[in-house]
Structure formats: C-alpha cells, structure tokens
Design a binder for these strands. Structure first.
Lengths: 201, 201
DNA sequence: TGTTATACTTAACAGTGTTAAGTTAAATGA
DNA sequence: TCATTTAACTTAACACTGTTAAGTATAACA
C-alpha cells in the first residue's frame, strides 16, 4: 500500500518546486511582473498545472508569504532565548523585524500593506502568523514594563508605538530606495533608539 | 486671436476631467483594478484619447498623487503661520500629517505606497511637491535643533525618524481598522510624544 | 486485459496597456 | 466662399495577462 504515499510525496515535491520557483521570481522581479506562464516555464510545466496545486496567483503569493513570516517568527524567537536584558532584546527584535522587511520587501508589503486593503484584516486574524508576530512584540514590551524601565505602563499602547516606528521606517526604506536617506544602519538604529528612549522618558 | 486660448482652455478642461475620473476610480477600486478602458468609459471618450493627455497609466497616477501632495502641503503650510513654539509646531504638524492620511486614506496610500512601487524613486526628486513636503519637515525639525531642544543634531536623520513614526502609525491605522488599537487619538498622541521625547533625550 | 482515476496539456475566453493608422471636424489662408 | 492644413479623436490591432473547460495520456487497480 505504499503507492498512495509515494504519489502524495511526489505531489508535495512538485508543490514545493512551484513554490520556490514562484518565490525566486517574485523576489527578483516583483509580484506584478511575474506571470503564471513565467513560473510555469521555469518549472517546465504548463501554466494550468499550477492551478492543480494553488487556487490562484494570490494563493501562491500567500503561501510564499506564510513561509517567510514563519521565518521571521523563528528569527525573533531565537533572539529571545539568547538574551536576558529586556531592552536589549527589544532593540534587537526591532532590528530583526526591519531587516526582515528589507530582505523580503514583497512579502512584507503584501502581508502588512497590500492584503489588508483588499481583504479586510487579513494577516492579523486569530491564529495567523501575523498575530503571532504581534504577540511576540507584546511579550517583549511587557517585560520592559514589568521591570519598570518604561514610563508608559500600557502594554498595548507601548507595543503599538513600537510597531508604528519599525513599520514606518521599513516601508519608507522599501518604497523610496532613491531618497537620500541617512546611512541605512544609522537610521534604523536611531529610529529604534529614539522610540525606546521616548518610552523611558 | 482668442481661438488658441479657448482651445487650450478646452484641452485643460478635458485633462482635468480625465484626472478626476481617474482619481475617483483609483480611490474607490484600487489602482490595479482600474483599466484605461474603465476611465475612458467614465468620461465617454475612447481609451486612446487618454494617451493624448498622459504618457501612460503611471503618469496618470503620478498626476493624481501630485494633487494630493499639494493638498497636504497646503494644510501644513497653514499650520506654520499660527505658531511660534517649534516643538509645539512640530507636534501639530505630525498630527496634521496623520489626520490627513486618515481623512484621505486611499489618496495617502496611492501617493506613499502604491506610486513608488510602480514608478521607481519618484515624488521626492528635486523641485517636486514631495520634496517640498519633506522640506517643510526639515524646517520644523531644524528649528527644534537650533533652539537646542533636541539632543540629536543631524537634521536629516531627525526628520527621517519623525517621518517614520507618523508614516508608520498612519498606515497601520488605515490598513488594520479591525485591530484592537488603543483609542485612536491617544495612540497618535503617544506616537508623536514618544518620538519627540526620544529626540530630546 | 479492460476500466477507472490521476496528472497534466491544449485551446480558448475575456481582459490588460499601448500604438499605428485612419477619420472627422474645425481653423486657416486665398 | 472654398480648398487646405491642422488638431482632436477613434478604430483596430498587438502582445500580453489570469483563469477555465475540455481533452489526452498514463499509471493504478480489479
């Protein structure tokens, strides 16, 4: 009875093949500039085959994004383990978050900007990866407050302020690559530093 | 010799007609979901006529956004006149910026998120309206630094940090209306306050 | 070996942005 | 007033897009 298992394995393999071909093209050429035919060409199947594995183009992108968001969550979780100072952890988390956005701008924009516009509240629904990411932020902030490092005692507001800052700088750097920004690393550090100092004051 | 003038006037009129039809459709249905044929239908001209007035679809988007930016600039400039305390002016400017974004969310996203995606690195070029808006921010920040209120002395970095914060919270509020935000006014005030305090520290 | 189910492809539809060529009507000059 | 020029606008087409209904070939099963 190993036939069905082998078949399922083969199917999963092709699914992954499609997914990674799509990711590579999305990242390199931008979601809008990648057609289903292009993806099909890359994996040497007909375009319609993709539809046997994914509902449509947005479903494909959705799957790509989910993977990368899980990646982000992973990166953040690891950070938490190797640190004891809550402020330092928050600082590093902020950096990791921004760097993730800059590394996968398409995925970031889709999840946090594009999708919610056309599909209300996606990305942050209960049980979604997006929600888990924000829960992580809540935890980080909560520790800073518990240790009475922050003046502001409201976990929600504090988290949202932090999120605004990192979200803002991430999108600006993505969307206006030609703007004469301060040296990128300095800007990121200053944004995080300013926000944390502001929360302390 | 009034013929040429009348013709020019008529041409300008149609240009404006196209522009406002495009804005309405872009805002209501999203840039991607609006075709040149749809715009043409709305104004009851053939699709190709649009190309006599605008180079291509992104040029149309560009012109729509320029109008929006002029609007924003106007709002901000008015603020400046009625204030003497630089920090207070900066605070109010930040508020006005965010409120503008929330009042015209689609226009804001079109200008600061959609447009840069489709037209690399524009809007902030020399002489552009976008540049003027950022110059306004530079001015506000510069006064705070000159009066030695801010610790950070780099006008550019300081301005960019400020922009990141207001841009971030504006987009989050627009894109995730169902998220359990802190009361909106409190969140906005806290974001601005935190950033300014962080820059003082 | 014949039947059924699975995996994949072909061909097509309705739509897109954009352009070259053609048409119509108004302005101009004799 | 009438032919000519010029400007405004349209028609038809191209090469693409996402997506689907219908068809084919092959592997699995009885």
């Amino acid at each position: 009875m190993g036939v069905k298992e082998r078949r399922a394995r083969e199917k999963e393999q092709l699914r992954q093949q499609i997914l990674s071909a799509a990711r590579e093209l999305f990242v390199n050429e931008g979601y809008e500039n990648v057609s289903m035919r292009k993806i099909a060409n890359k994996i040497e199947y007909s375009p319609t085959t993709i539809y046997l594995y994914f509902k449509d183009k947005t479903d494909l992108l959705d799957s790509v994004c989910k993977e990368t968001l899980l990646n982000l969550l992973n990166t953040l979780e690891q950070l938490k383990r190797n640190n004891t100072d809550p402020v330092e952890t928050l600082r590093k988390s902020g950096r990791a978050y921004i760097e993730f956005g800059l590394k996968y701008p398409q995925d970031y924009k889709l999840t946090f900007v594009t999708r919610p516009q056309f599909q209300q509240g996606l990305g942050l629904d209960e049980g979604s990866v997006g929600e888990k990411v924000f829960n992580y932020l809540r935890e980080m902030v909560s520790e800073c407050i518990q240790q009475q490092i922050f003046q502001q005692v409201d976990v929600e507001t504090t988290g949202q302020v932090m999120w605004s800052a990192v979200h803002g700088v991430t999108l600006l750097l993505i969307d206006f690559p030609d703007f004469p920004w301060t040296e990128k690393d300095k800007l990121i550090d200053t944004v995080i530093h300013t926000t944390i100092e502001g929360l302390k004051a």
